[in-house]
Amino acid sequence: MVILEAKGVRKVYRGDGVETEALRGVDLRVEKGEFTALVGPSGSGKSTLLHLLAGLDLPTEGEVYVGGVRLDRLSRSQRARFRLERIGLVFQAYNLLPVLTALENAAFVLELRGVPKGERERRALEALAALGLKDKAHRYPRQLSGGEQQRVAVARALAAEPLVVLADEPTANLDSRTGLALIERMKALNEAQGVTFLFSTHDPRLLEHVRRVVRLEDGRIVGEEVR
């Protein structure tokens, strides 16, 4: 079953008189249960593609499908609601709401969905435990290390049991050992629970455990390895 699909996607940024063609016709399909990495040099369009797949922005041309729904045809608030129900997001930094504890952050998406407190805390705690953060559930983000903060963000994505988790450089602010540990945990969750992952990175050392690697250069997909 195809979970993510980009068809002939182009994205042109216009601003201050400059036009940047960040994506120049990208076709990509991700099947359910896949664990896929998006790699490429800085400025190749990885973030742009992930944002379009998450419905955080609209393509200039082309079509974007998530779980069979054509995202680029939805209004902004329809896309917001769709993300809330179906997509787990992890950003490179500033993922967490500083005023909420790790547990509250992990449960935040569920809270927005209106899941009762008892249930959402149980699920958030489960997700935190799966990422090795059970004993830090009641800390605030400023009391956590960068790697721990990223794990809380992943836990938030997982607790919501989304169709797919999209992560834009989740390891960018981590040293390669912690980064690798995070990728390994994600991989473990992918294998144990069948969660579909698509994440970007420009650190080739993290790709050891990744079966499918999509290479992006200058706004185009230039290669794909399946190991």
Binding site: L56, S77, R81, F82, L84, F91, L97, L112
Partner: peptide, 16 residues
């Protein structure tokens, strides 16, 4: 506004 951006990214609609 950036923080609002994060909330919107997580799925908060404009009205909320």
């Amino acid at each position: 506004v950036r923080e609002f951006g994060l909330l919107a990214a997580l799925g908060l609609t404009g009205g909320r």
